[in-house]
Amino acid sequence: MVRVKLWGSLRALADGEEWVEVEASNFKELLDALAEKHPGLAPQIKRGVSLALDGVIYREAWFTKIGPENEVILMPYMVGG
């Protein structure tokens, strides 16, 4: 199981949970599992999100490995200028 932290304004779409626990071994599985467990998150996930793995931010990279020992944080999709 992997624990992922949602940013505050998503929590209302995830039964108020700050941390969501899902079965996943990579980012794609994590995002699929999140959308399945909390369908309210699906539109945001479809629009795009970033994920921070132990402090390193990834914008995409579905197949990045994750495990229970990792800090995984869901973040908005990064944009820049």
């Binding site: 932290k5 940013w7 921070a52 132990d54 402090g55 390193v56 931010i57 800090e71 944080i73 869901l74 973040m75």
Partner: peptide, 11 residues
């Protein structure tokens, strides 16, 4: 080690 204000812990 700081827990950043936006979520992740800084390296």
């Amino acid at each position: 080690g700081t827990l950043s204000s936006y979520g992740p812990t800084f390296n």
